[in-house]
């Protein structure tokens, strides 16, 4: 299956554009599996699936489906 990623801030451009639009995952993969598979996993602070926030503690229990839109944002500080 493939999910659509949405990266912003410092994560933008971290993945190839085609890969970001259709990121391959094994069927039954969880959000935690997805984050762990990324080369910048340690810089992922926020995750949401189809517009709904998923806190870090709940990522392992959130199974992804084909076509899901997954937003990944880096940590935010000050400014």
């Amino acid at each position: 299956m493939k999910v659509q990623l949405d990266l912003a801030g410092e994560l933008e451009g971290a993945l190839d554009e085609a890969l970001e639009a259709a990121y391959p995952l094994e069927t039954g993969a969880t959000l935690e599996d997805l984050v762990a598979s990324l080369p910048f996993a340690s810089r992922v602070a926020l995750t949401s699936v189809n517009g709904e926030l998923v806190p870090p503690a709940e990522r392992a229990g959130r199974t992804l489906s084909d076509g899901d839109e997954v937003m990944l944002l880096p940590p935010v500080k000050g400014g």
């Binding site: 912003a8 801030g9 410092e10 933008e12 944002l73 880096p74 935010v76 000050g78 400014g79």
Partner: peptide, 22 residues
């Protein structure tokens, strides 16, 4: 630290895309 690299490269401005998405 990753945050330092991000700050050096983008300044604080990169948060504008994060806040927009959020």
């Amino acid at each position: 630290h990753g945050s330092r690299r991000a700050l050096m490269r983008y300044g604080t401005l990169s948060m504008i895309d994060v806040m927009q998405k959020f």
